[in-house]
Design a protein around this nucleic acid. Sequence first.
DNA 1: ATAGGTTTTGTCAAGCTTTTGTACAT
DNA 2: ATGTACAAAAGCTTGACAAAACCTAT
Lengths: 282, 282, 282
Amino acid sequence: METAALRIGELSRRTGVSPELLRAWERRYGLLQPVRSAGGLRLYSARDVDRVHAMRHHLAEGFAAAEAATMAARAPAAAVEIPASDALRAALSSFDDEGANAAFDALLARLSTDTLLREVIVPYLHELGERWERGEASIAQEHFSSALLRGRLLGLARGWGRGLGPVAVLACAPGEQHDLGLLAFGLALRARGWRIVYLGPDTPVASVADTVQAVDPAFTVVSAVDPKAFRRHAAELREVSRQTRLCLGGPGADGIDAGAGILALTGDPVLEAERLTELARA
Amino acid sequence: METAALRIGELSRRTGVSPELLRAWERRYGLLQPVRSAGGLRLYSARDVDRVHAMRHHLAEGFAAAEAATMAARAPAAAVEIPASDALRAALSSFDDEGANAAFDALLARLSTDTLLREVIVPYLHELGERWERGEASIAQEHFSSALLRGRLLGLARGWGRGLGPVAVLACAPGEQHDLGLLAFGLALRARGWRIVYLGPDTPVASVADTVQAVDPAFTVVSAVDPKAFRRHAAELREVSRQTRLCLGGPGADGIDAGAGILALTGDPVLEAERLTELARA
Amino acid sequence: METAALRIGELSRRTGVSPELLRAWERRYGLLQPVRSAGGLRLYSARDVDRVHAMRHHLAEGFAAAEAATMAARAPAAAVEIPASDALRAALSSFDDEGANAAFDALLARLSTDTLLREVIVPYLHELGERWERGEASIAQEHFSSALLRGRLLGLARGWGRGLGPVAVLACAPGEQHDLGLLAFGLALRARGWRIVYLGPDTPVASVADTVQAVDPAFTVVSAVDPKAFRRHAAELREVSRQTRLCLGGPGADGIDAGAGILALTGDPVLEAERLTELARA
DNA sequence: ATAGGTTTTGTCAAGCTTTTGTACAT
DNA sequence: ATGTACAAAAGCTTGACAAAACCTAT
């Protein structure tokens, strides 16, 4: 996993706590248990950074160091605040192209693609879907928001077919127009080194088959919001699954009995991307 | 076959590489294998000129002579400048994401948005449409191409809602999925100072009406490939046309009797953008 | 595949890492495992370039070299997010024309024009200026960077005079050659719907006056790095300010007593563009 | 917080080899 | 035209060095 190994100086720089104090906290409270390099240097993980931040936070609250340390050791992760995501939401719901782009830029500058997807995009898509079901979202706003987000995500997607990693073919099922979730999934895969061939919304199963033949992917993902889209083409999909490792994704894959050798990806895009990557490693 | 037989002096003059060096390259790397005259003189073909040019190109890129030679021998044409629009076409039809983006970038760096749209994108869309009608285009390729171009065009569209110009609302008719032409039209308008509110594919007429109410545009354009999309919603559209200056666009607007006060935009996107701008100036 | 074989000098040039250091990284961490030529020279692949970039990226993040190396070696190079702005900087400072253009394209796809200007171009210009003052930047280096950026910005500027928005006339003061800041300013205005008439470096005040007469702009901006450029032509400028809303821009406008009715624009280009647009809206 | 020792890491040098453009003799 | 020679530029290996960063213990 996260083997990011910081030395004490960098940890100090990132947390604003002197190396001496960091060592003291280790000795006295066992706050951190860094691994050591061959030569004996302490090597810290990214999680340790959080832990030190928590420690400082508790100290500032007035707790004694010993207490602060046990608290920090127990609950290292404090929620990250992402105010810009509210700004994005607000701009999208008022047709404010400029504001939405600025907010997106701000998020992009501060977060990794992964975090952006997980913390902002995916929740927003969920939210939109729910408002939609409850009849609250204006269709006009949904269209505006989708077009804008699609543009930004496709911007991030640029060049995602290049490189050396395994190839994944992504397509929406026939009739399916909602491709934002699939885009997010593609980006998450890309961040893990995959190469993406993206066919977009409403792709006939035969086209997926053609593409599979042409590029020989490690995985193929067909996505839909509505399970009917899968049922309607069950036979064809089964056929495709004989030529490639086939996955069904999106909310529509939830109730589906995928059938032998077909994998259902029903979780959030980033999670499923992680899972698929683990699977491919094996 | 191109039997144009150059002697080494002429080859040297054409390529700017000294005869000695040409011979050295032949001896050391086998870069060229000229036929010999009866008297033993080297006779080079036109292709050899390309090969030497490629060699020089690779050298300029920083490759070592030995490497440059093998590269030049393998792909003599690689150094030849393929017109970027052909390169784009070729890359799109072979699922080459990287190549397509590079070609698009090259075009972008050399052409104005307008020229890019008029000379490259619009012709390409036409071509695709025709191949489609004749059943020649693979659907898979069309999807891949559309997704990629959509991404790039939406990338250019960024921030097109800001500023000072008049506002135009753009939407595809209900059921209509082809938004690339509409996107191109929006970009052409933007290049003329308009602000764009873009609703994207398959937009219910009621949503268009909502948006018109919210942003009060100078023009509203609804686009479709199939005229039926307009006929099916004729009444609603007439209703909308009472609140805004309404235009119908795309191939589908061709045979339509638009009705009083409704403008049909049937020409190519850039042309129509120009026309609308003239109209707005008046 | 890509067997492009670079020798160590070229790899060094492309990555900005000295050959000695590259060899040290190989020996100590096994970062790269180049194939060898018959004579024993190291031959690197394109993938190795990515790997070195990743290594540098991790180093910049504060990781120890040993850790950075294992991270760079493990991750598929494409998965490491190297901020394109760093890539641009690196390419510019190593005279890597191709790399710089690619980085610029990547930035363009990812960011809005505004963000690109504010977060990348303007800071880079500052940085260049400072290095220049401290005598660290070579003239060649500055020329190369300026020429490349000017080309790209002018590429973005294409067609910025057409359309419907208000007109702004932009010119560098007599003797002033630095127009990149002014270009950035023009682009920021364009992104807000303005039409730009751009006169470029070293423009006689009389020419500005002529242009003002011809196009009747909403604003006219004259820019200089050195305040003396303004002082020397104070009288003429005052004269021009009677025919148009005149602004003085650039670092040189900072200490200037602009005089009645003359506006000084001393902030960063994007900010000032926003300000002017607000002013025009009123 | 300091002292005294260790590890890590970028840089340099010496001496020798390979690569490659050019020159020269046949 | 051919083949050989040559010299500058670029690389290779080994070994060493020193500054910065870290360690432990007091």
